[in-house]
Design a protein around this nucleic acid. Structure first.
Lengths: 98, 98
DNA sequence: GCGATCACTTTCCGGCGTGGCAAGTTTTCC
DNA sequence: GGAAAACTTGCCACGCCGGAAAGTGATCGC
């Protein structure tokens, strides 16, 4: 029971990152503007959240060009998928006991 | 989609409180030692977490006696149940989109 | 060519939640 | 009488969160 709590990943638990991971888990990839608009966050905020996910090894980033024309694409990693799955299962284990 | 994020209740989202609410949602009541042991938290920590839930109107407290012999019992409120349900549904909406 | 605009990133920073420790209270058990 | 359970509260340090602002690079419209 309580081990479930330990299975909650703090990096993923933060609402915005949870949503971001969910989107990336279901899509092959997503770019910056898409995520920003879907999550309704600031550029700065999203940039930081994604950096956090990247540092955790949960997503990879691909940048094509810079500035206006550029595209920054995020993709979930195998590790990220596993971590997300694990987190969601822990959530269900906790909340599902109802 | 993003409205789901808004439906996440910060009071409930904190892991320990999420687990506490889940326990209270499935049991008619739970006392202090029980919760403390299940959540594996400190007395002080649990006391504060439960105070937070109480202040939010999500649980009610009943105290019989003081000190060693006393029993502090927590019970989820109708409002708490609704908030919990809503929170869990928001979680599922977010993570289930995968 | 120039200004507006988009796409990000980084720094600064105030604010808030988290959680341990320690101390104090009441009551019961041995 | 002393240990120990059951809580509560204050102090406080630490880290996350997230907005504002400023900066960079590149394209679009006129």
């Amino acid at each position: 029971m309580t081990t479930d709590l330990a299975n909650l990943d703090p990096v993923i638990h933060a609402p915005k990152r949870l949503a971001a991971m969910a989107l990336l888990a279901s899509a092959s990839s997503a770019d910056f503007p898409f995520l920003r608009d879907h999550l309704e966050v600031t550029d700065s905020d999203l940039s930081k959240q994604m950096a956090t996910l990247e540092n955790a090894g949960y997503v990879t980033v691909t940048k094509l060009g810079h500035g206006r024309g550029g595209v920054t694409t995020y993709r979930i990693t195998r590790q990220g998928k596993a971590a997300f799955k694990r987190h969601v299962e822990a959530l269900r284990a906790i909340t599902g006991s109802a």
